[in-house]
Amino acid sequence: MRKVNLRAFQITNADINTAYSDLGEQLKEKLTCSETVDNRRMRLNIEDPKNEEDLISYFQLKQDIVFCTMLRIELGNNVQHIASDLFKKKSFTINELNDSTVAGEAIYKSSYYFSISDNFLITNLPGNTTIRGLETYLYWFLEKYYQITPLIDMAQITKLSEIKSITVEDNPSNIKNHSSQNSFLTVQLKEQSIPLVKNLLNDVHSISDAQLDQLISVKLLINFRKIKKSDPIELQNALGALLKPVSDLGNYILEDKNRKKIKTGESLPRVKTVSIETTGSGFLNENQLLQEMYTFIRELKNEP
């Protein structure tokens, strides 16, 4: 058994005349019409020498849910190969990668799963990775933009009026590697602040940027205007949009009007931890994962 964190997202329904977003139906139709995995391969950057691609390698259509496997691959001959004939199939599972030949077309790098039903999307995408990559892929594949926003755990914070401010702090343990996705926002804050500090303090012009980086710490303070009454939908939309591009949620500190810490950003997104059986090769039981995702979606639909 393996513990899996399922993250919940809401799909913004752009059509006010319909109860639900058409993302699930559009994806079903496109996947059904897609003859081969080759038709679902999106190159991340044409100039990138690694030739990385995202693709939906496998899917199941169950009742009102679409269940998909997303792969990140790199073209070339190295290790963990994916045989060329797999791309000619309608779909293939991660388990089939074990049977790939040595002389493969591409290298398997990573994978995750996602399910869509009505206005909800569930995924086991790691918590330090934003939903932007999947949002981009769906835009490419469906040729239509869908806004996907993290669902907020309303049990954690029930009143918008309790939140006075959010402080974003840099974390030395996250900033050591500036290319890390975890530290994107805090690195940007620090990089933007160094020229400002130099302009404010003439005496530090003789100090290098690297030296100054070790001397200063950066905080971004976001103050909320006073809200007269609590509005769960407003809270969900505001915090969901704020947290959507953020991967270093541990650096987000929510404070009340007395500047007392309420929560950290990590506690805000709606997450459900489930236990999933694994195969002999260590892969997740995909049917069991689909069942857990479906159950999670039903729970969300039944909430008031």
Rank of each mutant, 00 (worst) to 15 (best):
F92S: 01
I163L: 09
N51W: 07
Q10G: 11
I148T: 01
I148N: 03
K226C: 03
L6H: 08
T278R: 11
N177E: 14
L61P: 01
T167R: 14
H205I: 11
S208N: 08
D231F: 02
Q188K: 13
N51P: 00
V271S: 06
S34Q: 05
G240I: 08
G250S: 10
T136G: 10
S110F: 05
P126N: 08
E303A: 10
I233K: 15
L86D: 01
I148F: 05
Y108I: 01
M1K: 11
S165C: 10
L185Q: 08
K144D: 03
Q291L: 11
F114D: 02
T129F: 07
A103W: 10
E286Q: 10
S179W: 11
Y58I: 02
T186R: 03
L86C: 03
V246F: 01
M293Y: 01
I163S: 04
F114K: 06
N78P: 00
A83G: 15
T264C: 06
N287Q: 13
E96L: 02
D22H: 10
E96M: 10
V246Y: 00
A106K: 07
Y146N: 04
V274R: 04
F120Q: 03
N45P: 00
Y146V: 04
K263N: 09
N258W: 06
N17H: 12
L196W: 11
A155N: 15
L23D: 00
P232Q: 08
I148Y: 05
G76Q: 09
N124A: 08
Q188P: 00
I175D: 12
E25C: 03
P245R: 04
S34C: 06
A8L: 07
K3R: 12
K144T: 09
S217N: 14
I175Y: 00
Q147A: 10
V79E: 11
V218M: 05
F67D: 07
Y146G: 02
D22K: 11
M293S: 09
E234G: 15
L268N: 03
R132V: 15
N39S: 15
K301A: 06
P269H: 07
R43Q: 11
A103Y: 13
K30N: 09
L290N: 12
C68H: 05
S111N: 13
R298N: 15
L75S: 12
T36K: 14
E234C: 11
E299Y: 08
I253N: 05
S247V: 07
P49A: 05
L242H: 05
E35G: 01
N258P: 00
Q288H: 05
P172D: 12
N17V: 03
T101P: 00
K219H: 08
K176H: 09
Y137V: 05
S117I: 00
S179R: 14
V37H: 02
I107R: 13
T186C: 06
D99F: 13
N77K: 15
R40T: 04
I131F: 04
F59C: 03
D203G: 12
Q214C: 05
R2S: 14
S173Q: 11
Q288M: 12
N45H: 11
L61V: 10
G240N: 07
I163C: 07
L254T: 01
V37W: 02
E52A: 07
L221F: 03
N177I: 00
N98S: 12
N302I: 02
L200G: 08
N182E: 15
E303C: 04
K62I: 13
F92P: 06
V197F: 12
T136R: 14
